[in-house]
């Protein structure tokens, strides 16, 4: 039993996922979520941001307006993805492999003034 729990723990990666700029409204109006995602994606590769985005869309997002978060299998234009407070462009974009304790922030750009 203890052995099984240990294996389970290693199969999942705990992360903090945050939403800002109105995206939180698509995620139960909650800005910060502690999530555990599978360590391997559907094809058995290490989980990356592309997988995280799909996973959040399928498992965390209750709102039916999926197109406001995801388009063409990636985050829609106008959303910045920040990996530990740095633009994902600096980290390899959606190929970045998530690590235990990472903070992933999705920010929707605002236009009002």
């Amino acid at each position: 039993m203890a052995e099984k729990t240990k294996t389970n723990k290693e199969d999942f990666i705990p992360l903090t996922v945050e939403f800002s700029g109105g995206l939180e409204m698509l995620f139960s109006n909650q800005k910060k979520h502690d999530v555990s995602i599978p360590a391997r994606d559907e094809s058995g590769n290490s989980s990356n941001i592309a997988f995280l985005v799909r996973y959040l869309c399928d498992n965390l997002m209750k709102d039916p307006k999926k197109e406001f978060f995801i388009q063409d299998n990636t985050v829609r234009p106008g959303i910045l993805v920040l990996i530990n407070d740095a633009d994902w462009q600096l980290e390899g974009e959606d190929e970045y492999e998530v690590k235990k304790g990472d903070n992933i922030l999705f920010v929707s750009t605002l236009h009002g003034g």
Partner: peptide
């Protein structure tokens, strides 16, 4: 920073979404 514009339907104005004075 934003090479492609957001889908028009996702753009929310202050009139639609609201805005708090001290925030802006």
């Amino acid at each position: 920073v934003f090479p492609r514009p957001p889908p028009a339907a996702s753009v929310v104005s202050c009139g639609e979404g609201g805005i708090l004075g001290p925030v802006v």
